[in-house]
């Protein structure tokens, strides 16, 4: 592992994942690429919400959305990787979560992916989510998928 990509989501599970990736990367001297993808739907929702607030002089556009996504990844990285001797870069993208992650992995020649994405079914089975599954099938290298460890919902 020389350069690994970590998919950063707005979930608590992401922090556990990133911590694990950070410790591994520190051990082998690898670099991390942190990617947060804002989907078109999320972008549209936020743009709508902002447009409805009168007198707010904020122009929310594609560039801002991308910068915001990158800033989010950077903030999570600064918080979680604090104290670890690991270099990371934060990237924000707008679009499909799987396609964009694969594109970034390709651009930066990443050789390992880290993603959260196994959920618990009612009986407690760990089931791969669609995104994790698509990443595993389409990435040419090892993919680490962590299980969301929350208790089974009632």
């Amino acid at each position: 592992m020389e350069r690994a990509l970590v998919v950063v989501e707005a979930t608590a599970a992401t922090k556990d994942l990133l911590r694990e990736a950070g410790e591994l990367a520190t051990g082998v001297g690898a670099e991390l690429i942190l990617v947060h993808v804002t989907t078109e739907d999320e972008y549209a929702d936020r743009a709508d919400a902002l447009a409805k607030i009168p007198d707010v002089d904020v122009s929310y556009d594609v560039t801002r959305a991308r910068d915001g996504a990158g800033q989010f990844a950077r903030d999570v990285g600064n918080e979680v990787l604090q104290g670890l001797d690991v270099d990371f870069r934060a990237i924000g993208r707008l679009g499909d979560k799987v396609d964009e992650v694969l594109a970034v992995a390709d651009e930066f020649n990443c050789d390992h992916l880290f993603v959260t994405g196994r959920q618990r079914s009612p009986t407690g089975k760990a089931i791969f989510g669609d995104r994790a599954q698509r990443l595993i099938l389409n990435f040419n290298g090892p993919v680490t998928v962590t299980t969301v460890t929350e208790e089974t919902p009632a």
Partner: peptide
Amino acid sequence: PAQRAQGIPP
């Protein structure tokens, strides 16, 4: 353990 399926039994 070899017969655990999809993470259960733990």
